[in-house]
Amino acid sequence: MVHEHPTDEPCSTSFPPAVLCPGELTSFSRGGGARTVPLVTRAVGAEVFLSGQTLFEGGAGIALHTHNCPESVTILEGDAIVEIDGTEHHVTRFDTTYVAAGTPHRFRNASATEPMRILWIYASVDATRTLVETGVTSRIDAEHVKTAGDNC
């Protein structure tokens, strides 16, 4: 079933526009050589989706996990290996993935020496991550303990 949203009604309430500069925002360690910079979050008024970037050092990767909502990731820099539901794919600059809620996946830098950067977008401001190995679930926004600025 497709739910159409009337074109004369906004998807959410109004919030002030923001310009977010990743190089000037606080990054948060994801462990294993990966650092995340939150971009569009509740801290800047987001009500519909979350976005941010994660920078992977050479050889870095993140643990196999799932989300409670769809996620799209675009490779901004470097080459990556993405595992989606047990199948590995080599992806490079501007390649984009779409992973449905509940699908196990992970990213790792394909290079041992060069950095790799992704842009991630979650289809909900209430997005969570559940680690496959431990079953531990946490809110994506709870991983970012400081608020983002809005000026470059």
Rank of each mutant, 00 (worst) to 15 (best):
V2E: 15
V2L: 14
H3I: 15
H3C: 13
E4V: 12
H5S: 04
H5D: 10
T7Y: 11
P10F: 10
T13F: 11
F15P: 04
P16Q: 07
P17S: 08
V19M: 15
V19L: 12
L20R: 14
C21T: 12
C21Q: 05
C21F: 08
P22I: 02
P22S: 08
P22W: 08
G23M: 13
E24F: 03
T26Q: 09
S27K: 15
G31N: 13
A34Q: 14
A34P: 06
A34T: 11
R35Y: 05
V37L: 11
P38G: 11
R42T: 09
R42D: 03
V44F: 02
V44A: 03
V44N: 12
G45R: 02
G45V: 04
E47Q: 14
V48L: 05
F49E: 10
L50A: 00
L50H: 00
L50M: 03
S51H: 04
G52S: 11
G52Q: 10
Q53T: 06
Q53F: 01
Q53Y: 06
F56E: 01
F56I: 13
G58L: 00
H65V: 11
T66E: 09
T66Q: 07
H67E: 04
C69R: 03
P70A: 08
E71P: 01
S72E: 09
V73A: 10
T74N: 09
T74R: 01
I75N: 00
E77F: 01
G78Q: 00
D79W: 08
A80L: 13
I81C: 01
D85G: 03
D85S: 12
G86S: 02
E88C: 11
E88A: 06
E88F: 02
H90K: 14
V91I: 07
R93S: 04
F94Q: 04
F94Y: 10
T96C: 14
Y98L: 00
Y98S: 08
Y98F: 14
A100G: 02
P104G: 06
H105G: 04
R108D: 07
R108A: 00
A110S: 10
S111C: 10
S111K: 03
I118N: 09
I121C: 08
I121L: 13
S124I: 15
T130Y: 13
L131Q: 11
L131G: 08
V132I: 15
V132F: 09
E133H: 06
E133T: 06
T137M: 00
T137S: 03
R139P: 07
D141P: 07
D141Y: 07
A142N: 12
H144F: 15
H144T: 07
H144G: 01
A148Y: 05
A148M: 12
G149A: 10
G149V: 10
D150K: 15
N151F: 13
